[in-house]
Amino acid sequence: MTNLAMWARLKSPWVIHFNSGACNGCDIEIVALLTPKYDVERFGIKLEPSPRHADVLLVTGSVTKQCTDRLKRIYDQMPQPKFVVAIGACACSGGIFQGTYGVEGGVDKVLPVNAYIPGCPPRPEAIIDGVVKLLNALAASTKKAPKAASKEEPALNAEIEVTEEVKPDAKQ
C-alpha cells in the first residue's frame, strides 16, 4: 500500500502554494506554470487549494512575522509524508528583505525545507526543474528504503539545491 501511494505521489504530486510575504513576482511565475506555454499538468503536477490534500508545499517570499504562525499551521495540516520547496531568493534566505523589521527570514527558519530554487524570480523552467529534482531524489530514496514513509518523520531528508541556471527551452 505504501509503495502504491509513493508511486502515485511520484507520478502526480499535488502541490499547494503559499505566499508568505512575496512581492508577487514568484507567484505569477507559479501561475504561469499552469498556463498553456508551460502546462505542468501534463506531468501530473496539480495545484491543490487545500493543504489537507497536498503533498508538496511551495513557499514563495520571505517569511514575515505575521505569516510565521500561518505557515506553520498550513504545514501541520498537510498529511505525511510532506515536502517543502522554497521558491525564490526571498524564500531561500530572506533575500533583499533580510534584516527588515517585518521579516523573520527564509523559510528554513520556520520549516524543514527539502529543495531550494533560487532566482528573483526563478524562471518557470527552473521551478519545474526544482520539483522534478525533488521527485527524483524521492524516487531514489524509495528504492533504498521502501518503508521510508513513516508517520513520525518526513521520508526525505536529502536536501537538493538547484544551483545552475536552467536554459530556457525555446521549443516549449
Binding site: N19, G21, A22, G61, S62, T64, Q66, C67, R70, F97, G99, T100, Y101, G102, V103
Partner: peptide, 11 residues
C-alpha cells in the same frame, strides 16, 4: 491586511 508587511520604507 499586513501579512506581507516587510518594512520596506524603513529598510
Amino acid at each position: 491586511i499586513g501579512y506581507v508587511h516587510r518594512g520596506i520604507e524603513k529598510a
